[in-house]
């Protein structure tokens, strides 16, 4: 998985990376699910989402919170993700539906926050994200 944990006293703080900006956004989604849910199952559904992208950092938080909403309302767990970054984020997410008899919730994430939020590019695209847990 393309993320590492950074130190935070209360919440979960990660640095996620990707070869391209598109991959960075997709990896952020997959990282969040990796923190929340144990294991992976076969793809059952494909969900398409659009998120306004006037500001890329805001769009990153909005996208992650959209996925949290999907997870908590219908149990959608994303295992593959493609994101096109333009005036809107155009997202195609493949995944399955959480089943408490088969799957295990590792950690309940309340929200993706703006704390430390920064998208930058060095050898890769990287973003620092704090999740409230």
């Amino acid at each position: 998985m393309d993320y590492i944990f950074l130190n935070h006293t209360a919440d979960i703080y990660i640095c996620v990376s990707g070869e391209t900006k598109e991959r960075l956004f997709a990896n952020a989604v997959l990282s969040m699910y990796d923190i929340m849910v144990e294991g992976k199952r076969r793809i059952e559904d494909i969900r398409k989402l659009k998120v306004d992208c006037i500001n890329e950092e805001d769009a990153l938080v909005d996208m992650l919170n959209e996925f949290l909403y999907l997870f908590y309302t219908c149990g959608f767990v994303c295992v593959e993700c493609r994101v096109k970054v333009d005036e809107k984020l155009d997202i195609e997410a493949s995944g399955y539906y959480f089943d408490k008899d088969k799957d295990r919730l590792k950690m309940e994430i309340k929200a993706a926050t703006y704390e430390y939020l920064r998208i930058k590019k060095d050898d890769k695209w990287r973003a620092n994200i704090v999740f409230d847990v």
Binding site: A10, E115, D132
Partner: peptide, 9 residues
């Protein structure tokens, strides 16, 4: 008190 986000806890 400790570090949170926005306000400290």
């Amino acid at each position: 008190g400790h570090q949170g986000y926005g306000f400290p806890i």
